[in-house]
Amino acid sequence: CCDFDLYKESRGLGDPEILARETVFSVSEVEALYELFKKISSAVIDDGLINKEEFQLALFKTNKKESLFADRVFDLFDTKHNGILGFEEFARALSVFHPNAPVDDKIEFSFQLYDLKHQGFIERQEVKQMVVATLAESGMNLSDDVIESIIDKTFEEADTKHDGKIDKEKWRILVLRHPSLLKNVTLQYLKDITTTFPSFVFHSQVADT
């Protein structure tokens, strides 16, 4: 009755040509990305998979930090919802962060990131939760009045239908007006991944073209 394979994480590089076809990465870039993956996935348990602790460690260089957003990003990467990332999930998710990835994919990813309750819209209470978390994580202190006025102003601009919700369409309008809001879903590093991890050539499965 159950498809256990669905939840079983495949280990290893897999087929870089298939991943290259289905992401914005070239075959060489997929192989170089795998070098990064190996580094992160061997930090705590060398099992060829990234768990949440290893992800946090790679992000913050410490596993002691609590972060709402590191959790959110990990959960969005974890498309099989089994608490660990295989290379394929890692590569597909990072593909969205490539400077050449379609802007629609970036808009979609950032919307899901902020739609904490998976309701299909972002509500005021979620925005407040995220602002409070950001301030706490960065050690900044703002009074509740100031936080409320930041959120008021944001909804004034974003909530064009005045229903207290920022749905996907309103999110799209907002980020197209403020492209800086998509800055954190673009990683320039991904353009230079083959030069950052040149050792991939020693493990390459494909001939140079």
Partner: peptide, 25 residues
């Protein structure tokens, strides 16, 4: 001082959203 920052601009500064640190050695 008037508040001009958009809440999402503030949120996007969160360290947990800065994946570039994945690439740091």
């Amino acid at each position: 001082k008037p508040v001009t920052m958009n809440a999402f601009e503030l949120i996007s500064t969160s360290q947990g959203l800065n994946l570039s640190s994945l690439f740091e050695k």
